[in-house]
Design a protein around this nucleic acid. Structure first.
Length: 500
RNA sequence: GGCCUCGUCGUCUAGCGGUUUAGGACGCCGCCCUCUCAAGGCGGAGAUCGCCGGUUCGAAUCCGGUCGAGGCUACCA
């Protein structure tokens, strides 16, 4: 029975392969590993599994590192950081795999196999179409004598190294921290290839070597590896190394209930950053996709996550990624993030939209921070600020939304022209402080002067000043604009709509 | 084909044999607040716990079967 050595200090790792960007599923796996390390006083290791030269790229590696940093998942050991168990790129660890292979050769736990890929494919194809079906490599080369095998190796014949699955081994069992007791019959275990004919390690072999050498205590990974686990346990046993605790994570599905795919869904962390999500929100949301604190709490900050995360509250069921809820959560984080952090986060969006430059922001920092209350509780995504605030940057004229003009200014009996003329005089009156409250209070007196409901006073002002019947709070916005611009906008509207 | 999983409101989930008329969150609907939109507050609809049997005084919770979904079964990771 495989069991973990609980006396060792907790060491976990996130091991992406740079064959693509960091996607949502990988991000969640990373978050769980990170949070587990933090909540157990352990180490979080980042290892890049780049043994597939065909698909691995340096660019992808950089994107992954960038996304990890953006998410705020700091690693204790790994690329750029180093550590006592490096290197942290598999391509730089080949000597450790050959060392392990030598050890297995000495222990007579592996054997060379000379069957070619073509022969294997043919055998498998034939077996699959026959009655019993395919049940793994037929072990042709396992019965080769030592001498014959060595002679063929010496003759330069291409060969792989296969694990000699033990004859008298009971079922392979382990306690998965998420799925519970697992048991796999030994007779369905293939004599899997550990080292390819070109000398490179296969995935299952490389992971086990790395995880043992890096003294990983808990392997938290996607459940597509659940069926690989018994194979890996066999390798741990052959190596005579302690088997870590495994925790397998269910899959994240798209809204259509199907596997997330680049074609149908936004899948990479980078895309979510560009869409205006906050790292805190994404971490919170992803943490809750398959894990719960208590079933009640939904807003969970990093500190809470890092102190309370544990494996026993992870769900087994696949989860559907519901972006609507992510949006809500992001809005919630925007509401509480504070003006300063908001300005930093929203800057690229404002600049991108051409509303201002980075210099404008650094020179008028406090003015930009004053914008925050106008949109904080009205934004789901950072970029929402652009649409809501653009009118403020428009100067002495503003684009008048036709629908709003018709509905508010030209409405039968609204007396919007009277209202605007009166308001114009109030706003132009320099004896009234250019501040939210005095301006608003003075305008409100018009409800009595003109005998109109507040709505009929304020909505015309809103359309004239912001161009639309929907906007952030009126006088809070006006306060942040120049008096001459606001007055000019009212004159402009009066002229455009009423021909003044 | 073989092996291994998973299955509670539309979605994320709580639930670990009785305290459950199955709780919370998002979304949806209504009301309140209100200068618009939001935010916030309050309330509502929404799950016979995939299905069928069994165990039990009692099951979403335990067991068996079944259906559906998924993973692995590569000289990919």
């Amino acid at each position: 029975m495989a069991s973990a050595d609980s006396s060792r200090p907790v060491r976990v790792r996130f091991a992406p392969s740079p064959t693509g960007e960091l996607h949502i599923g990988g991000a969640r796996t990373a978050i769980y590993n990170w949070a587990f390390a933090r909540s157990h006083g352990g180490s979080f290791i980042l290892r890049i599994e780049d043994t597939d030269p065909e698909r691995s790229t340096e660019e992808n590696k950089q994107v992954i590192l960038r996304s990890m940093k953006w998410l705020g998942l700091d690693w204790d050991e790994g690329p750029e950081k180093g550590g006592n168990f490096g290197p942290y790129l598999q391509t730089e660890r080949f000597n450790t795999y050959t060392d392990a292979l030598e050890q297995l050769k000495k222990a007579d736990a592996v054997y060379p196999c000379f069957c070619t890929k073509e022969e294997l494919d043919a055998k498998r194809a034939q077996a699959e179409s026959s009655e019993g079906g395919y049940s793994g490599y037929d072990r042709t080369c396992r019965s080769l004598s030592k001498e014959e095998a060595q002679a063929r190796i010496d003759a330069g014949e291409p060969h792989v190294w296969r694990l000699k699955v033990p004859e008298n081994h009971g079922p392979i069992e382990f306690e998965d921290a998420v799925y519970g007791h697992m048991s796999f019959p030994i007779d369905v275990m293939d004599d899997m290839i550990l080292v390819r004919s070109d000398g490179t390690p296969t995935y299952n072999f490389a992971v086990v070597c790395d995880d043992t050498n890096m003294e990983i205590t808990h392997v938290i990974r996607g459940d597509d590896h659940l069926s690989n686990t018994p194979r890996q346990i066999l390798i741990y046993e052959a190596l005579g190394k302690p088997v870590p605790t495994f925790a397998h994570l269910s899959m994240i599905l798209g809204a259509d209930g199907r596997k997330l795919s680049k074609r149908r869904n936004a899948t990479s962390v980078e895309e979510y950053a560009k869409k205006g999500y906050l790292p805190d929100a994404l971490v919170n949301f992803l943490a809750l996709l398959g894990w719960s604190l208590d079933g009640e709490t939904t807003i969970i900050d990093r500190n809470t996550l890092c102190s309370h995360f544990d494996l026993d509250r992870i769900t087994k069921k696949d989860a559907i990624f519901d972006e609507t809820k992510l949006e809500w959560m992001n809005g919630s984080y925007i509401q509480t993030m504070g003006a300063s952090a908001w300005v930093d986060a929203v800057e690229p969006f404002l600049v991108e939209a051409g509303l201002c430059t980075a210099e404008d922001i650094s020179e008028n920092r406090s003015w930009f921070e004053a914008l925050y209350p106008l949109v904080a509780e009205r934004s789901k995504l950072l970029g929402d600020a652009v649409e809501k605030l653009s009118f403020i940057f428009d100067g002495p004229t503003v684009h008048l939304d036709e629908k709003s003009v018709n509905k508010v200014l030209k409405k039968e009996g609204s007396r919007a022209d009277e209202v605007l003329r009166a308001v114009r005089d109030i706003l132009a009156d320099t004896s009234i402080a250019w501040e939210c409250d005095p301006l608003q209070d003075t305008c409100r007196t018009l409800t009595e002067t003109l005998d109109l409901k507040a709505k009929f006073i304020f909505q015309p002002i809103r359309v004239a000043v912001t161009g639309s019947q929907v906007s952030p709070p009126l006088f809070e916005s006006i306060e942040l604009m120049k008096r001459e611009d606001v007055v000019a906008r009212i004159d402009y509207t009066l002229h455009e709509v009423f021909g003044d």
